[in-house]
């Protein structure tokens, strides 16, 4: 019953990780997003008279926080599921191994794509969304594969891992035509740039914290509930 156990332990890990991440986010990251939104220029309204369809958005601060919490939990659950699967596929787990896996995942999911596509605050100019998402996926997959080759292959092949890690940056992330902010007021641009620098710092810390908690808890729980599970032991060896 690997699936059920991995799902349950990923839920437990996600509850703890999303609580830690959300606390940091609510105090240090969200205020920067809200401050940047004040400078966001409204989208031009269609002038041909077609009625604008209002899409749903959270109506107030409490509702918005609730959906952010929910999204944080689901994202932590997804990350924890992926990490637990990789760890169990690879072999036995422990808290220490979990931390190492978590840090490798932090490099793959945050640091490497962040080098090409730095974390953004609202109001920034950016390249086409689809292109950026495709590059993000490519970068995450190649970095994770590269780190895996680097960690687990014989010495002779470790260079291949390094090539995989560098490859997405040679392909280069899609860049915006205008770099930075298109706000007409230079004072606002200076303020937004300052907010952006703080945002990069705090989102890096928040994500390191997220992966540290996911790695530690997933490693510990996999060790406790999968490595020494009598069901698995009996079904494999009896």
């Amino acid at each position: 019953m690997y699936f059920r156990q991995i799902f349950l332990l990923a839920c437990l890990s996600a509850i703890v990780a999303s609580l830690g991440f959300s606390l940091y986010q609510f105090y240090f990251v969200n205020p920067l997003i809200f401050a940047a939104e004040l400078y966001e220029i409204a989208e031009p309204v269609a002038i041909d008279g077609t009625p604008q369809i209002e899409t749903w958005t959270p109506s107030d601060a409490i509702e918005r926080s609730f959906y952010t919490l929910l999204a944080n939990f689901l994202m932590s659950l997804a990350y924890s599921l992926l990490l637990a699967c990789a760890m169990v596929f690879r072999g036995t787990s422990s808290t220490l191994k979990g931390i190492a896996w978590g840090m490798a995942a932090y490099l793959s999911f945050f640091v490497a794509p962040g080098l090409g596509l730095p974390p953004e605050i609202p109001g920034m100019e950016a390249a086409d969304l689809n292109l950026r998402q495709n590059w993000w996926f490519l970068c995450v997959i190649l970095t994770a594969a590269g780190l895996a080759v680097f960690a687990f292959s014989p010495l002779y092949y470790k260079g291949a891992g390094l090539i995989l890690v560098i490859l997405p940056h040679l392909i280069a992330a899609p860049a915006a035509e205008i770099h930075g902010f298109s706000h007409p007021d230079p004072e606002a641009v200076a303020k937004l740039t300052e907010l952006w620098q703080q945002f990069i710092l705090h989102s890096s810390i928040a994500n390191a914290l997220l992966w540290l908690i996911i790695g530690t808890t997933t490693g510990f729980l996999c060790h406790k509930f999968i490595d020494y599970n009598p069901d698995h032991y009996n079904s494999t060896f009896n």
Binding site: A71, N72, F110, N207
Partner: peptide
């Protein structure tokens, strides 16, 4: 959570998408 293009999914998970540096907007 991170990539669904529907506006509703984007608006609900907006702050999370920014905080984890998923490509957004």
């Amino acid at each position: 959570v991170g990539f669904a293009p529907m506006d509703m999914a984007h608006n609900a998970a907006h702050d999370t998408r920014h905080s984890v540096a998923f490509p957004c907007h």
